[in-house]
Design a protein around this nucleic acid. Sequence first.
RNA 1: GCGCCCGUAGCUCAGGGGAUAGAGCAAGGGACUUCUAAUCCCUGUGUCGCAGGUUCGAUUCCUGCCGGGCGCACCA
Length: 568
Amino acid sequence: MKERLERGKAVTRQIREDLRRRVEEALRCAAAAGDLKLPLFPTVTIEVPREKDHGDYATAVALGMARTEKRAPREIAEKIVRHLPKDGVGISRIEIAGPGFINFFLAHDWLHDVLRLVQAMGSAYGQTEHGAGKKVQVEFVSANPTGPLNVVNARAAAVGDTLVRILAASGYDAHREFYINDAGNQVARFGLSVEARLRELVGQKVQFPADGYPGEYVRDLARKVLERDGEVLLGLNQEERVRRLAEFGVREMVKDQKALLARYGVEYEVWFSEKSLRDEGAAEKVVEVLQGRGYTYEKDGAVWFKSTIFGDDKDRVLVKSNGEFTYLVPDIAYHWNKYDRGFETVIDLLGPDHHGYIDRLRAAVEAGGYDPRSLEVIIVQMVRLIRGGRPVRISKRAGEFVTMEELLDEVGKDAARFFFLMRSADSHLDFDLDLARVQGNENPVYYVQYAHARICSILQEAEKRGVAFPDPAEVDLTPLATPEEVELMKKIAALPEEIIEAAEAREPHRLTVYARDLATLFHSFYTECRVLGAEPGLTAARLVLVDCTRIVLRNVLELLGISAPERM
RNA sequence: GCGCCCGUAGCUCAGGGGAUAGAGCAAGGGACUUCUAAUCCCUGUGUCGCAGGUUCGAUUCCUGCCGGGCGCACCA
């Protein structure tokens, strides 16, 4: 299959489709020849067998056809194989195995085409047009601007950011968004807390608010603002002072959160302010619209949203009896706003304490006239930090660390992101701090990065020895024939499809599994196969293979937001 | 009580309607005159929580139960 690989499409999908087409054609031919009855046309799926002894690809169609054909599956499989068209990807061997599987063993030419494709595409290898430019928004972290980010925020940031990266690589128009809760109750309490600390600093006797924010960072904020314009503030009446301090505090916290997330490799397209929505009257508008559509009623002096008619398990208050909006109202406004900005799929990453929130949010989306299925929610489960084999007590008073910043200081961005991306988001995670800090073989991050560094070292050595890198379009790749080389090529070929599948399943953690598998295959190759010092033809082919591995490792690490060091 | 997540090897977890269920760590034994030993190779372990159901086939899908975690505000 010379130059038949399309760039915008996952290579392994093209192979799979080719095989499926040919099996379907074989079924038709067999029926026409009277070998099969074919009362109804079966769905042909081409799968990758778990055992590699079972071929590169396999299909179980014959198994499902036994009943309608009134014949043994193996016999049916034989008929299919007999009529299989010869065109398309080269097949070196076909076997009928087990209860009636058809196993395909492919000739290696297609893998050589893959290597050439990797060389041609470079950092773009892995990207496809699968998503066809569909607009997707992922909202994640969205922590309150009243305190530092915690470790679950760090987990959500890793998951959300990589999800956006793989969606973008899959051809979606994907956007990151952070919703700033810079309005409402908690901001007011925050302002009061800063204000209390400020007055403490100048020696006034103050009762710290009972529901205030006790953290040391609040004192730091007070110190900072005191230096800057303490005199002016202390001259104001209390209400005005609290308002200004709330504003100041929020601005500072958001600034810190932005900086920390940037250090973590996360750059949002949009930081969306709740206050801006409130200021433009979006909250009132939501209540009006819902009222206009008859989705509300009044009870006990409050305005309720009849969310139960959209599947929620109880109705929700929109306007409290004291006239304030509940947090739900601006959230509804925000979600409607997302759709109005043209997002076709909206993905929210929420903490485990917010899962009860999903139904009412979806109800609100539907009540707004949008498709509730277009709202997806990923629950990012809790994180337990493990040190010395036991959970770190998350106790603010005991001063055991809980913040994202402290985590980054301790283990670094690469380890933190990798560890958070090793598990699926919806399962609880034990984060082993000791393991994350180990600069050695037990640490999976270093294992993957080391593979990359090793390759760079080979390429540098080649240059030093004056071994020219071959022209990938011309080089003969047929010498690549050991099991290690073939497995490595197959893994390289799988990248684009892995990315698509991870994106579709919204499961970025699959990429860390892939990265580790690829590194393992490379390390095995490295042990078994010498690149430099082999015969020139073999060296040339292996240089290409090794360089393709480097490209793929780098591309995967880039998707994970982890550095790819050239030396370690 | 209701809802969500989880239950797979000693530990932490992947996987997933198919043919012998995997990885890492931990334990033991090997492999560096060579391109980085932060590596590789070999060795053992499973009632896939339990019970039903659907299916030619279930660890995977469905239901129930048991166990663990987390939610169930006119807080956000």
